[in-house]
């Protein structure tokens, strides 16, 4: 076997804990531990590099990409603390007032920003609360379907909306939910239930927003759970059947625990996005009646930063957002580890 291929296979096994789950867990961890804690560590590492240096050379390429396009531009984050000028480099710009924190103070004394912050947290939290369990439930349901063809068709239909842009969904929502001409409202009216202001009333708007979010993404998010379910050893189900377990018992005691690592991983990643905000979804769905609940941080940044040309303010807000997200990510990961899960890293 060519050496490079051999090395590649070795590396795959070596790095398995990061990507692979469950089954091979036992012996790979042993391998890692032994490599790291054995007495001749320095020598072993040298031998290791001598053997695999070509692979590290290959790794240089993506690393260079990240450094050039992701890390070097990052120094422009400094404009959050400086008075932005279009003609000066970021090093030449003068520092902002209040030890550079002028724009953070400005943001936090801005009512619109606080409103946007509240809305972002509220909408993301509701999204998490309603949107996170939805694909798990759908995956469990799909898994129980006895006819494979019916299952496949249902799954395809369910994940199709993922490919629609929010602009299109917002257009459809107007056609369906407009108070006096919308299809749904016409139907409700014909049934004598009266018209509902799905898009014009702040409370109903939030419900519509969350509902459309689930509708758009539930099928797509199911895919990863279904993949995890197929990895569960079928012998476990057979054994459970022998013990007289019904469908719900099997779901509860085998399927759910089987996909638990996947659920935890995705939950951690979602928590990392709690303060992140999409732009097109709230922007496309919002209108002038519901602005008090639909104005989120990304819209604030767009309005003040891009349209109002207040770049420093927008960067300060963006930086704040990122820092909070990173904190959440680390906290969620630490928490997950504390409860015995593996976490994201």
């Amino acid at each position: 076997m060519p050496k490079l291929v051999q090395a590649w296979l070795d590396i795959k096994v070596f790095s398995a804990p990061g990507v692979q789950n469950m089954e091979s867990k036992g012996d790979t961890t042993v391998k890692t531990v032994s490599l790291q804690s054995s007495p001749g560590r320095g020598y072993k590492a040298l031998a290791y590099f001598k053997r695999y240096w070509t692979l590290y050379l290959l790794l240089l390429l993506p690393m260079t990409y990240f450094i050039i396009f992701k890390y070097i531009p990052m120094h422009y984050i400094l404009i959050a603390f400086k008075k932005y000028s279009i003609v000066q480099s970021v090093w030449e710009m003068p520092w902002a007032a209040n030890n550079g924190f002028e724009y953070f103070i400005k943001a936090f004394s801005n009512k619109d920003f606080l409103n946007a912050l509240r809305n972002t947290i509220m909408l993301n939290f509701l999204d998490l609360l309603c949107g996170f369990p939805a694909p798990i439930i759908l995956a469990l349901l799909l898994n129980e379907l006895p006819f494979p063809r019916y299952k496949r068709v249902t799954q395809t239909i369910a994940y199709m909306p993922h490919f629609l842009s929010w602009i299109i969904i917002a257009g459809m929502a107007k056609q369906l939910f407009a108070p006096s001409t919308g299809l749904v409202n016409n139907a409700l009216d014909a049934l004598g239930l009266g018209r509902v202001e799905f898009l014009n009333d702040p409370t109903y708007w939030v419900i519509t927003y969350i509902f459309l979010g689930i509708w758009q993404s539930v099928g797509w998010n199911t895919i990863i759970y279904l993949a995890a379910i197929t990895a569960i050893n079928p012998e476990l189900y057979e054994a459970a059947e022998m013990d007289g377990a019904g469908r719900f018992r099997k779901m509860w005691h085998i399927t759910l625990p089987g996909i638990r690592p996947t659920i935890v991983t995705l939950l951690i990643l979602s928590l990392g996005r709690i303060l992140g905000s999409e732009f097109d979804r709230p922007y496309a769905l919002s209108n002038h009646m519901v602005n008090n609940v639909s104005n989120v941080i990304s819209i604030f940044v767009y309005k003040y930063g891009i349209q109002g040309l207040q770049f420093s303010l927008a960067t300060a807000v963006g930086l704040f957002q990122s820092v909070v997200c990173v904190i959440f990510l680390f906290a969620a990961n630490a928490l997950a580890k504390k409860f015995g899960e593996r976490g994201v890293w």
Partner: peptide, 17 residues
């Protein structure tokens, strides 16, 4: 400075409401 778009959208919102 920089207030135009923000104030214009506030105006539109409260007028519609």
């Amino acid at each position: 400075e920089g207030m135009g778009p923000a104030l214009a959208s506030k105006r539109d919102n409260f007028l519609v409401q």
